[in-house]
Amino acid sequence: MNLPKFLLADNSNHPEDIFVLHTEYPRFLINLKDDEIEWFEDLSNENEQDLANELEGLIEAAGVFYDAEMEGLE
């Protein structure tokens, strides 16, 4: 199966939260409401500066993905 890079996630126990799941390495779930991130990878062996640069772009891309999905629903 070929998964999309980002998926919207929903949970009825957290109706105010907006979750986006990143399915490629490094996999994570971000709550766009407060930018809290849950990592699904062990990132301890990664170069911190390279990782920080990549993650900044991925987090921004998650927000862009969400905005595009919401525009498509209007």
Rank of each mutant, 00 (worst) to 15 (best):
L73C: 06
W39E: 06
L43C: 02
N11I: 09
L29C: 07
L32R: 05
L51E: 03
V20K: 00
I59K: 07
L51G: 03
L7W: 14
E36Q: 14
T23D: 05
F65C: 03
R27Y: 01
F40I: 03
K5P: 15
F19W: 06
L73R: 11
D35R: 12
L73A: 13
F65W: 04
F28A: 02
L73H: 12
D42L: 01
E16T: 10
N13V: 14
P26E: 02
N53G: 10
I37F: 08
G57N: 10
E54I: 05
N45E: 10
N45H: 09
E24K: 06
S12V: 13
F28K: 00
E69P: 05
S44R: 05
L32N: 04
E41H: 03
N13H: 15
V64H: 13
E41Y: 01
A62R: 00
N13E: 12
A68T: 13
P4L: 11
E60G: 15
G72A: 06
I59L: 13
E36W: 12
E60W: 14
N47V: 04
E24C: 10
I59N: 05
D35T: 13
V20L: 00
H14I: 15
N2P: 11
V64I: 13
N53P: 06
E71T: 10
L32V: 02
A52M: 12
L8Q: 07
F19G: 04
F19A: 04
L32C: 06
G72R: 05
F19C: 04
N31K: 07
D35I: 08
E60V: 13
I59D: 04
E46M: 02
E36S: 12
V20C: 00
K5N: 11
N45A: 15
W39M: 10
E69Q: 11
L51I: 01
E41V: 03
V20G: 01
N13P: 11
I37S: 07
E41P: 02
D10S: 12
R27Q: 05
L58Q: 03
N53F: 11
H14P: 14
L21A: 10
G72T: 02
G72D: 07
Y25A: 02
L51P: 02
H14A: 09
D42P: 01
T23S: 10
E69R: 15
K5Y: 09
D34C: 11
L7Y: 13
N2K: 14
I59W: 05
E24T: 08
Q49V: 14
A68K: 13
K33Q: 15
L21M: 12
S12C: 10
I37D: 05
T23H: 03
A68N: 07
D67V: 09
S12E: 11
D35Y: 10
A61P: 01
L7E: 14
L29S: 07
K5W: 13
K33D: 14
E71K: 13
E56W: 07
E36D: 15
E56F: 15
E74Q: 12
H14T: 08
L7A: 09
